[in-house]
Design a protein around this nucleic acid. Sequence first.
DNA 1: GACCTTAGTTTACAACTGTAATCGTTTTTA
DNA 2: TAAAAACGATTACAGTTGTAAACTAAGGTC
Lengths: 146, 146
Amino acid sequence: MAVEEKVEMTTSEREIMRVVWTLGEATSKDIIDVLEAKKEWKPATAKTFIGRLVKKGFLLAEPEGNKYIYSAAISEEDSVKTAAHRLFDQICHKQAGKTIADMLSEAPLSHQDVELIQQVLNDKKKHAVDEVACNCVPGQCKCSTH
Amino acid sequence: MAVEEKVEMTTSEREIMRVVWTLGEATSKDIIDVLEAKKEWKPATAKTFIGRLVKKGFLLAEPEGNKYIYSAAISEEDSVKTAAHRLFDQICHKQAGKTIADMLSEAPLSHQDVELIQQVLNDKKKHAVDEVACNCVPGQCKCSTH
DNA sequence: GACCTTAGTTTACAACTGTAATCGTTTTTA
DNA sequence: TAAAAACGATTACAGTTGTAAACTAAGGTC
């Protein structure tokens, strides 16, 4: 099989996606209106990003009359998960715990969120290891194992 | 005061930084050796990134004889924190909890990590709110508050 | 002392990003 | 029905990023 070349979404493109994720279906006008207000983008700018997202396969464009109805080809959750993965790919596995703790300490959380996280953490407790294996190249992390 | 224009570190540049963070101080040779092995970068490629990092102010270059001793101008933790922040800036605050839960469930954790996270979570419990305020623009998130 | 290695600097260049104007059609409106 | 508005497509263009070769100067080697 061909190597799956990972197409990524840029920060600006994600702004477009957020509108579509929210609305479910949207015309270019819907998108432009929201982002003209929020980002002060010219309509042409939003159009460019819409076009790129369609080309990249993140937006589906269903013809309707002389225009398109856009919808997301990927769920917001999956997309956020991918972004989070990319972040963790850049740090040593051994640091993942500390990083999550940092994020946790700064995140705005509701009681419900805390509850959810507690549940996940409880599950983690059962499967935690004594020492996380390092995934770095020798010389690229402080692990004594190298 | 002048607007602090945020200079960012790219993914490739971060690879260089990881070596420096690990070694504390490093010559270009040290860096090149590690990354030639790991990333199959030509020495010239690593040199380019080193130069850009110095220009961006992430790497300090102390002259020593005819070369430089490089060291990091920013700690790895701060840098990871910044990267995490950038990620969270792109999603609705209301989703932060769920996102952290996702990351947590997939992260490789040691007992010690779990313990640390539990402590932070306990602290969070005291300050959790009933409902996290949405930080999105109307039309850009599903919050009923809009 | 003439050459080779090494380190840093300069230059190159294509792809990706942000930002947008313009063009060509179709649809709406006066 | 003629002008105006809307929409997608094409083109533009500078800055960033990945990837690297070439150039230059200093140091080490035979």
